[in-house]
Design a protein around this nucleic acid. Structure first.
Lengths: 265, 265
DNA sequence: CGTCGAATTGACCCCTGTCAACCAGGGTGG
DNA sequence: CCACCCTGGTTGACAGGGGTCAATTCGACG
């Protein structure tokens, strides 16, 4: 967990690429004016490298920065009194796992880099200034948190009502969509740098049972080996998982915009 | 599910009381100026009565109103392909279960009145106008959705990692807090108009097992009979549930406000 | 080649689900 | 006033999905 050297050219391009990922994510669901888009890309952002399995936000911390993921996977997790942990959501490149802290700075869950990860730290002050100046940005942030909410709701359903195989299948379908993986000829492949133990923490199962379920799923054409997910028959897996991507809100049915467009400050 | 007659005095007082509940909820976590508070109380709101077990928002609906709960309990629920259902959250008086729809109108989960309920329907247009005029209101709405998110995260933990008794205990602790029930001499009592079957759908258990777990919990001083929750030993139940109310964000550690105060439009 | 984390496998059993019957209360209609 | 039903709560018997514990293998890396 260390900041990169400042002012290098590599750092500049990483910052630009990261902010562009974030902007892409926002504009996938929200309408932003040109000046608002520029304001997002102009956010200050400090590159930061997180080592695997490091908690970088702890439950109860009062944070002053958000973290924009450039690469790697970050998990929101919570400790339970009996010693076990539950992962509440995974976040991938372009996501800002703690965007909500802008408005509610006391972290109610921990954030952990499950793989090594590269993030950009963006100070709350800058995000707040952007939100205060451009109502459209505040709205986009709000909407982003709402999508996060809907994903969490689906996770409740997943751990609450599905059996082990379907849970894992559902999770891997969701991550495929969130990575923007493409279905080619009914097959999908993507990289998910997560251990089986993490999969277990995310699905409310034990690592042992995840292992067994994965080998059972292999018969249905789902492979998870070497941190790579390979799906031989996407439609079949979707059926098995009971997966309906609607909650990800990525199908753009004429996006809503509250804030007036045009004469932003 | 029917609107009340218009223009009666009873309707007026119900509207005022309901909006006041909503305002109370918002100001519990957000700072609002006098004009913003007035704007909330001036929202148009149509009283509506929901009969028990009626879905009034269906998955995939594109909604144009939000529902502010005046009395009763409303559940956010989702259907699973194998036929069972999972309740993702309960909402009580003062809550607006679908506030997020202001910014994301396609419902990704259904809303159901689990008891008979009285709500106020507030049109999106009015909420959007208020949010656009007063950035502080938009921010309060955003923050409200964030709290909803944190509650959902806790529910993932609950169904994912706790055993049956702890799950039920945790749920009943949470609802006690959200109802604002008071702990008197270590004891708490409140009314929760929910059947054991609903409890089961909310905890990822079956109705039969909820029944058995409830009778086991009786030995620990937790009683749920006739839709009334009676807790003989709050601290003991909190311990058993592993309950930490921090995620409800009700302890006001100097609330954050982004929008400038004072010269609102 | 040794080490450490992750994946894998086996044996065992307990928590929870399933199925089914039965009971209690309240509303409804005769 | 009682028969009827319907919903919700209660109980029993049984089974199965997933947890637990522990040992073994695999693979990356120094």
């Amino acid at each position: 967990m260390l900041p990169l050297a400042k002012g290098t050219r590599a750092m500049q391009t990483q910052r630009e690429a990261g902010l562009q990922l974030f902007l892409d994510r926002l504009t996938r669901r929200s309408v932003l004016s040109r000046r608002e888009r520029e304001a997002i890309l102009a956010l200050p952002a400090q590159p930061w490298v997180l080592s695997a399995n490091s908690d970088f936000v702890r439950q109860g911390d009062r944070v002053e920065h958000t973290s924009l993921i450039v690469s790697g996977v970050i998990a929101r997790s919570e400790q339970v009194s009996n010693g076990s942990r539950q992962i509440t959501n995974f976040y991938v490149r372009g996501d800002m796992p703690d965007l909500h802290s802008v408005v509610q700075p006391t972290a109610s869950s921990a954030l952990e880099a499950v793989s090594g990860a590269a993030v950009l730290r963006v100070p709350h002050s800058a995000l707040r200034a952007a939100a205060a100046t451009y109502p459209g940005i505040a709205e986009a942030f709000w909407r982003d948190c709402v999508v996060d909410l809907m994903v969490h709701a689906q996770w409740v359903v997943n751990v609450g009502r599905r059996n082990a195989q379907s849970r894992i299948a559902h999770l891997l379908c969701e991550m495929a969509c969130r990575y923007g993986a493409r279905v080619v000829d009914g097959k999908v492949t993507y990289h998910l740098p997560v251990s089986q133990a993490h999969l277990a923490e995310a699905t409310g199962l034990t690592a042992v049972h995840v292992n067994r379920s994965l080998s059972a799923l292999r018969k249905s054409g789902l492979f998870f080996q070497g941190r790579t997910v390979r799906i031989e028959d996407w439609d079949e897996l979707v059926r098995l998982a009971g997966f309906d991507p609607a909650y990800l809100q990525e199908s753009s049915v004429e996006p809503v915009r509250i804030a007036a467009l045009g004469q932003a400050a």
